[in-house]
Design a protein around this nucleic acid. Structure first.
Lengths: 321, 321
DNA sequence: CAGGGCGCCGCTCATCTGAGCGCGCCCGTT
DNA sequence: AACGGGCGCGCTCAGATGAGCGGCGCCCTG
């Protein structure tokens, strides 16, 4: 004896339902047409289709063959009310390759999003460099450096050329400068800010319409800024509740800016300016950054995310709780 | 460099499309609602969804976990304009188990289809016996024997009890008789037809509303009738173009009845009577029977099919050409 | 620089569709 | 036999939807 039916209604009903579902979903006929064809009322057809969906006879899947997980991207976007979102399906066990994939994805996103009316701001981060490397085409827009660079020992700092490289691809003007992201005292910072190139760039921050940045967590290896900060300062800032660092801007768990001595010694975009940028695109990877991303998004610092599936899933889980 | 996008439109467009598709197909919102949510025109939403379907971003599948292939059943039903159709997904390398599965499927189908107003006719065939074995419940209807039986050497002929068994399950009257399907001469046949039980059963053939039968091909091992026919007769009938045998009724490739000496010597339903039965349910298996099924269906002898996937696929392929 | 072609967009209007309702049938109960 | 609950069915009517059309801007070409 073999259980043939799935529903309680019997095989003929099942096949009729499948037939109707096929006509409706696959052939795209209207319910009225189907009703006529099968000599049913259109209500009956509607109910059959309803059944077919709820019973799992008809399955609808969203997705496509490729690196980006569109379905997850859409869910992440909706969960946080982001402007855009790209989640790649890359394995996350190799940070460098991950960065490469996310950089490529961001480059494609930028190519698509940037129109000639935009003004592009770039933060200093390895992931942003990866984006620049992958970038092949861009509308002719001005490109503006948003922060000083942090020279990390042993890292090829050709990434200093970031803004110039991207501007070259775009064919637009580059507003860049050579300065560190943080200096030892506020006076030096002020002096640096008065430097012509720095001032030039800074004066245009207000006009930036789209920016690309990384997001750091306030922990070792999770933020370039953290890694160059003194032990005492790290503790102070941790006590102040720093949860995330976005392009040198520090925010607490609610996304509110955290002001400190360090703020005065930074060369770069301020929290208010960053929040004012219509679309800040953040490239983030590593599940250690869940809390940081939550903070940055809640604070309105970040408007779109480019990330990988494990982090995206962790974020969605975190948002539910 | 990684190709991230699938469509030519870029990742943001892709994700937007996925988002819209999710809202529409998964959350069941209306296009107007979605349009408002995403600040698009409802036309744009409709076009996105259209794209999503044609580009394969949204995939709709019909099917269900179980023995019967609903999708294929529906296709077979539509291809031949059948009243009903059940295709099982059983492996086809073991005729006896196949017959068991099809019998069970047919039993379920009958249980579903037969209403108290029906009159059920049964042909003599191993597959019909298998159906009877699996039958557990049936509306209270009269059950009528349509043909004499063919005693095959070495085969347990408890299947002679077929009609009685089914009638017992149904709880209705049984009209059965003990007679062979074919006799040596027309006179004997006529005499047999005058036997009270035979006449009783035959007089009710006209009132049969649903019948179950097998379909045989005119080849060795493909039809019980063929197997008991003399060599000369086989050749004669083959010359007359016999393509199928349904419950003792012989038809040519177009489904037209083939009259011959044999016709006179048969004890059972005639071609005209069979065509007059509103729904003849045929149980068929084995890819050797493609031509036979085509003939039977074209001739209007068979109205619904119970079969297995390989034969079903072969039939659909044959119908296309 | 002008003209023509093409693709995207949103409109109108007729048709389709969903939500909710009431009817009639079936079945088990009193 | 009468009653009552549950279920399947099809109605109404407002809102959703599709087909086809014309407008508009962009790009290519002459």
């Amino acid at each position: 004896m073999v259980a043939v039916s799935g529903g309680a209604r019997g095989p003929a009903h099942l096949v009729l339902t499948a037939s109707v579902a096929r006509r409706y979903y696959l052939d795209g006929r209207s319910k009225v047409e189907i009703a006529e064809e099968f000599a049913l009322s259109r209500f009956k057809v509607a109910r059959l289709l309803e059944d077919a969906r709820t019973s799992g006879l008809v399955r609808i899947e969203i997705g496509h063959p490729g690196v980006i997980d569109v379905e997850l991207s859409a869910r992440l976007m909706e969960t946080f009310g982001l402007l855009h979102c790209v989640v790649t399906d890359t394995p996350d066990d190799h940070p460098a390759s991950l960065r490469g994939h996310l950089g490529a994805a961001t480059a494609e996103l930028l190519t698509e999003l940037i129109t000639p009316e935009d003004v592009l701001g770039l933060s200093w981060a390895r992931s942003v460099s990866a984006m620049a490397t992958a970038l092949q085409r861009l509308a002719k827009v001005p490109v503006i450096q948003l922060t000083g660079a942090l020279a990390r020992p042993g890292v090829d700092d050709s990434s200093i050329e970031l803004v110039r490289d991207v501007a070259r691809v775009a064919g637009g003007p580059a507003y860049f400068f050579y300065a560190p992201m943080a200096v030892p005292d506020a006076a030096t910072a002020q002096a640096l800010r008065r430097q012509p190139e720095v001032a030039q760039a800074f004066s245009r921050i207000g006009s930036v319409t789209r920016a690309v940045a990384g997001v750091g967590a306030w922990a070792p290896e999770q933020s370039t800024l953290y890694d160059v900060t003194s032990e005492a300062e790290r503790r102070d800032l941790a006590r102040l509740g720093v949860a995330a660092e976005i392009s040198g801007v520090l925010v607490d768990a609610d996304g509110g800016p955290v002001a400190s001595d360090l703020t005065e010694r930074m060369i770069g975009i301020t929290a208010e300016q960053m929040r004012a940028v219509p679309e800040v695109i953040a490239i983030v990877y590593g599940t250690a950054k869940v809390r940081a991303v939550l903070a940055a998004v809640r604070g309105g610092m970040v408007d779109t995310l480019v990330t990988h599936s494990t982090l995206a899933e962790a974020l969605i889980r975190a948002a539910r709780s």
